[in-house]
């Protein structure tokens, strides 16, 4: 998931950084100081989620949950994920410093796209329908993320094309799991605290 330093070519690194910076700028514009505690706590929840390892056959995968984060936070997902990834790089060593822009873009842009795609659906009155939209969002975000990772690798050189082709099938099990988990999470939120979904976005 995390691309490491040194693998990507400089044009990819620079364009990733610039696009992420724009996203973060828009996100910061949309977030005022009043929302800081909410955004900070939500970002921490997603940080913790990425350490939930689910077994998959003989190996395990970790949740990403950028789809749900996008549905809840919208553009604010950009700064939230940038900070989360920065902390992961510095204190855990996942990813790299210069690829931070590309990694942020790969995870946050799908989140924003899912926000626009599933915004209405998740706010449906019926918990079942809302949960299905949540599942679509969860799986869809992983799909877009995988596509973008593959794209970033393929653009960086001929020799990475095979690795790029391997990224998509490798993410299919994660997509399925994330879909189910998002379904259950949205369903629960709808039954326990329906006002949260309609409120959390503004």
């Amino acid at each position: 998931m995390h691309i490491v330093d040194g693998a990507l070519s400089s044009p990819v690194l620079i364009s990733g950084a610039v696009l992420s910076a724009i996203g973060v700028f828009i996100g910061l514009k949309k977030m005022d100081y009043d929302h800081l505690p909410l955004v900070g706590v939500l970002a921490s929840v997603f940080f913790i989620a990425s350490y939930i390892h689910l077994p998959l056959g003989f190996s395990s995968v970790h949740l990403i949950m950028n789809g749900l984060l996008g549905i809840i936070l919208g553009w604010v997902a950009f700064p939230a994920l940038l900070v989360a990834l920065l902390l992961q790089v510095i204190f855990f060593g996942f990813g790299g410093l210069l690829v931070l822009g590309v990694n942020t873009l790969n995870i946050a842009l799908p989140a924003v796209l899912i926000y626009y795609l599933c915004y209405k659906g998740v706010r449906n009155d019926s918990p079942k329908i809302a949960a299905i939209w949540g599942a679509v969002g969860g799986a869809g975000a992983i799909f877009i993320t995988a596509l973008m990772v593959a794209f970033a690798l393929a653009l960086s050189g001929e020799s990475f094309v095979l690795a790029a082709k391997a990224v998509l099938p490798a993410h299919i099990p994660i997509m399925v799991i994330e879909g189910f988990v998002s379904y259950a999470a949205v369903y629960l939120i709808h039954t326990v605290k329906p006002e949260f979904i309609s409120k959390g976005s503004n």
């Binding site: 949740l63 189910f180 379904y183 939120i189 326990v192």
Partner: peptide, 21 residues
């Protein structure tokens, strides 16, 4: 497992939003 983890995650979200408030 996935359903339970989903519920766990949803509950975690709700509790943390309440905590944020």
């Amino acid at each position: 497992t996935w359903k339970s983890i989903g519920y766990l995650f949803g509950m975690l979200l709700i509790r943390s939003v309440e905590r944020a408030e």
